[in-house]
Design a protein around this nucleic acid. Structure first.
Lengths: 143, 143
DNA sequence: CCTTGATCCTGTAGCGGCTACAGACCCTAC
DNA sequence: GTAGGGTCTGTAGCCGCTACAGGATCAAGG
């Protein structure tokens, strides 16, 4: 769709927020931690964003949606910014993160199994005896 | 069960830490946030723990291992402490937490799928073109 | 031109769940 | 007595935001 009739430049912070769906304060936060560049300012000191900022923020947001840490995103951005990056480098970051994600899934699945197995044995009755409490109380010291 | 021959009482904080595997500082933290009771003190003000503290801390640690938040653990502990708790109440807390765990797993699995599908298309070559970067750059504004 | 209300600016504090460190005490052994 | 450990307290830092206070500035209406 040709959309050039809409300038999408010289945006205020609130407009960038609305356009990207990013929280207003988070934009400033990303600037502080170096994920977003210091934007040019109006004479009164108000931030003015352009198309490049919209794309940069969108990149950051999509990376966050995929669970990349800010450190990893900084890495990805510096790869791209310095130019001459390779797919291999980017893939390396991605594979590492994928490993972390898979590890988290495994941890949570172990919890899920243990928890659902335990709860399945709950009577749901008005008695104080409770398999879940037993699991939490099961002392390796006695027994 | 008669187990009174093992004292396991009058423990120092470091001993409680060693016995439970809990980090030394974390014990004080749990005390500050109300998961552990204020223990009795030696004349010089040093904390002295007994068997009950070992069990309490173990309870908290097992609950944390299952991913319960401190808020939920406080809830579980107050159920037990006030007496007259029921399995139904405990199960309720557990079921709620299980829902949260399952939601997290779903979120992570969505990330995992998207990430692994994308990385699978990476060439791993020295070219700048990269499917992962494409995904991060894919602008909903143009295209 | 002036006022009003919305927006912008800055710095800072808070969330959860710890972890660690500084600087003061204290305890034990030699 | 003194050296070294352990303990005490308060506080700051981690991540990734989010929110709020108190001031400056903007845009519209009268």
């Amino acid at each position: 769709m040709p959309d050039d009739h809409a300038p999408a430049s010289d945006l205020k912070r609130s407009e960038l927020a609305r356009l990207t769906g990013c929280n207003l304060e988070t934009i400033r936060y990303y600037e502080n931690v170096g994920l977003m560049p210091d934007p040019p300012r109006s004479p009164a000191g108000h931030r003015r964003y352009g198309r490049a900022h919209v794309e940069r923020l969108s990149f950051v947001m999509r990376a966050r949606e995929l669970g990349f840490t800010m450190e990893e995103i900084r890495g990805l951005l510096s790869l791209v910014d310095r130019g001459g990056h390779t797919c291999a480098e980017v893939e390396g970051v991605g594979r590492h993160h994928l490993g972390v994600v898979r590890a988290k899934i495994r941890d949570l699945q172990a919890i899920e199994t243990r928890l659902s197995d335990t709860i399945a044995r709950c009577s749901g009755a008005d008695t104080p005896e409770c398999p879940l409490l037993d699991v939490l109380n099961q002392s390796r010291l006695r027994a």
